[in-house]
Amino acid sequence: MVFKGLVIKDFLLIRMYLFTWLAVLIVLYTAGASFAAYQKQFYLVFPFLLVLYVGHTLVLPVTAGILLKAEEKGQYWLHGTADGKRLLSSKLIVSTIVLLASLLLTNVLMAFSLMAANGESQLAFLEGQFPWVEGVLFNGGIIFSAFYLTTWGLFLWSLFHSMAQSPALRKIRWILIIAVYFITQTVIVRVTEWSAVKAFLQSWSIQIESPLSSTGGMNEISFTMDSNGLLVWPLLLSCAGFCLLFFAAAWLLDRKVEV
């Protein structure tokens, strides 16, 4: 009851943004596709779609950011019966709904473009097959990156507001936030460079049959993908890291953030 109320509230807060964004996506695509068709080079729509896809990594953190911004004034949302975990997971769930809706629309546009392009001229790299596996992996990669950015965002946001009560910290909290992020990143990178750790991380991989497996270009994906396929340990550890960040954010929200 309490949680459902929170989710409905957060959805109402984001509803107009969601509809506007979906409309913008359609308009952008229509403009891009019309341009490509006008140039009689319809395949130009694919790089354009790729940019839209990559942009989706930002949809989740931006949505979560808008939802948090709505509570910042007065932090009255802390005066309620729900604890920090519930407050934040409601935000995360609604943001995920927004991401999935947007991603779904982009996938539909992609499928539509593929079919349109296929009818026009056979796309050489597809070999007449619909790229299911690539699609799933690509979507997964985007969702993964989005969660990476968002859980970090939630944690740093809570940390930022936890420092508001101390005037000494308050002045330098931007610097501290950036420092916390980069120090953590550096530590992780250093640790993963150790050969023992490296060997462990690569010890479990899942082979994926794909004609496109060598074309992945995104950093976040290359972390969990290599020529051997999907690396399971880095993926699982990252997810554990996301959970850790989330719970840390909720803990800070309950105990340290003041109105």
């Binding site: 009851m1 309490v2 459902k4 109320g5 929170l6 409905i8 509230k9 109402l12 807060l13 107009m16 709505a70 509570e71 004034k73 007065g74 932090q75 009255y76 949302w77 005066h79 309620g80 019966t81 729900a82 109105v259």
Partner: peptide
């Protein structure tokens, strides 16, 4: 409180409904 109680894009009845879900 003096600030932050009301969500600007909510209708009056939505505010009431939200409060009803949050406080038994």
């Amino acid at each position: 409180s003096t600030e932050g109680m009301l969500y600007q894009n909510f209708k009056v009845e939505q505010m009431i409904h939200f409060f009803a879900t949050q406080y038994p």
